[in-house]
Amino acid sequence: MNSIIFSDDVWVLWGFIAVWAAVSIYFEQRFKWASAISGAILALVGAMLFTNIGVLPVESPVYDAVWAYVVPLAIPLLLFQINVRQIFSESRRLLFIFLVSAGGTVLGSIAAFFLLKNHIPFLDKIGGMISASYIGGGINFAAMAAKFETPGEYVSATVVADNFMMAMLFFILISIPALKWFQIHYDMPFEDKVKAEGNGENSAESYWKRKSISLKDIAVNMGAAFALVAVSVKIAGFFKSVFSHPLLTGTFGDQYLVLTTLTVLVIFLFPRFFEKLNGSQELGTYFIYLFFVVIGIPADLRLIVTNAPLILLFVFLIAISNLIVSLLVGKLFRIRLEEILLAVNATVGGPTTAAAMAIAKGWRELVAPIMLVGTLGYLIGNYVGTFMGNWFSSFL
């Protein structure tokens, strides 16, 4: 398809990606309607629109560069603030329900795969992507899409269905505390506190407020991220050359698994060093917004109309399984409703969207804990997605 901007117009394409990511973030933090939609969806839908009206090319080396370099750098940056010891010592209840939600994703993925495996092409790859994404969020989706080398048009169709499902699910999660049945059957201390205080003034902007970030913070964050990516690439390459069995090379030779494991090991050994760094979450989140812009660009709407309805059913079954399992187990163990809903949000959308929901609802005491617990999904999501994708492929 012809476009106004050519595929080799590198600076203009980089400019569009960076500017549209910035616009999406600005709108999310400036306007309530945009915050409700989420900046990620704005980035994706806007990029799709510009492609389908003929402004942007469907393919370009610039998009490949985002997948090859930006996504791997985002992984360690988003992991730097994990405090593994603190997760287990201070957030046990949230950690428990988060793992339950992840289990709901796994159960839903298995059921949905066997129900639809004969109707959706590349469902083993898509299943691995969504299994990882609905445990850790968008960064795991990116990692698995790159790992399984899923065709771009099916990545785009899955992203559209996924984001539509996430928008529906987030609306459900936000609406649940207002329903009387849940008010009667679940404890909601944080929601009750907000109502008692009569304070509804909360926004993404107030959470992502200005921080004191030095040149040293930026330099160390980026230097450490580049170093970890470089080392992980070399380690993964070494294991690929040593092992010949597909399972071993797919595990030990996987750049993303090596990268997440290496990063967590480093921050576990040197927690104080990384805790003192400011800006890693902001840098990593911005990189993810660049990714959301890029994955929206190659979306061929004709193919999406053809494939997305069934893919939407696939992701719907997984998301609903996550929610139902979380609510049932949470009720059994008397988990607070707010913690259940945030755990579901963190698994499906990632810790950033869960924190955004906590901020928007006024549950400020839960913002830091859900960010802390939710980042664990970055690690375990890649392992689950890798296993599920490889396992699903054995049935096709």
Rank of each mutant, 00 (worst) to 15 (best):
residue 57 P to L: 00
residue 332 L to I: 04
residue 266 V to H: 06
residue 314 F to P: 03
residue 273 F to N: 06
residue 171 F to A: 14
residue 375 T to W: 15
residue 163 N to K: 08
residue 161 A to Q: 07
residue 176 I to R: 09
residue 394 S to Y: 03
residue 294 V to F: 05
residue 333 F to T: 04
residue 248 L to M: 10
residue 51 T to A: 12
residue 154 Y to V: 10
residue 384 V to K: 00
residue 256 Y to S: 06
residue 370 I to R: 03
residue 290 L to S: 02
residue 88 F to T: 00
residue 114 F to N: 02
residue 21 A to E: 01
residue 256 Y to M: 07
residue 124 D to P: 01
residue 202 N to I: 09
residue 277 L to I: 04
residue 189 P to V: 03
residue 388 M to P: 00
residue 5 I to H: 02
residue 87 I to L: 12
residue 316 F to C: 14
residue 92 R to G: 14
residue 290 L to N: 02
residue 281 Q to W: 05
residue 268 F to E: 01
residue 189 P to H: 08
residue 143 A to K: 06
residue 370 I to H: 08
residue 223 G to A: 10
residue 3 S to C: 08
residue 78 L to C: 11
residue 380 I to P: 09
residue 295 I to D: 02
residue 46 G to V: 10
residue 87 I to N: 06
residue 374 G to T: 01
residue 299 A to N: 07
residue 134 Y to V: 01
residue 58 V to K: 09
residue 339 E to D: 09
residue 235 I to T: 00
residue 390 N to I: 06
residue 302 R to V: 13
residue 100 V to R: 07
residue 53 I to L: 06
residue 48 M to A: 10
residue 58 V to G: 03
residue 383 Y to C: 02
residue 258 V to H: 05
residue 168 M to Q: 06
residue 363 W to D: 04
residue 220 V to F: 15
residue 46 G to W: 07
residue 197 E to Y: 11
residue 269 L to G: 09
residue 109 S to G: 04
residue 362 G to M: 09
residue 219 A to R: 08
residue 186 Y to G: 14
residue 301 L to I: 13
residue 40 A to I: 11
residue 148 F to S: 07
residue 358 A to T: 05
residue 286 Y to I: 08
residue 50 F to H: 05
residue 357 M to C: 15
residue 128 G to F: 00
residue 291 F to V: 04
residue 394 S to H: 06
residue 115 L to V: 10
residue 46 G to S: 13
residue 140 N to S: 12
residue 158 T to L: 15
residue 16 F to N: 01
residue 360 A to H: 14
residue 103 G to T: 00
residue 85 R to I: 05
residue 132 A to F: 01
residue 187 D to M: 15
residue 94 L to Y: 05
residue 95 L to Q: 08
residue 133 S to G: 04
residue 94 L to M: 13
residue 80 F to V: 06
residue 354 A to E: 03
residue 120 I to D: 01
residue 5 I to P: 03
residue 146 A to D: 13
residue 170 F to H: 09
residue 193 K to H: 13
residue 306 T to K: 13
residue 242 V to T: 02
residue 89 S to M: 09
residue 155 V to K: 00
residue 276 K to E: 12
residue 53 I to P: 02
residue 109 S to Y: 01
residue 141 F to C: 11
residue 112 A to S: 10
residue 261 T to P: 08
residue 209 K to P: 13
residue 188 M to Q: 11
residue 380 I to C: 10
residue 155 V to W: 01
residue 179 L to Q: 09
residue 188 M to Y: 02
residue 181 W to C: 11
residue 334 R to K: 14
residue 75 I to C: 15
residue 134 Y to S: 04
residue 368 A to F: 14
residue 235 I to N: 03
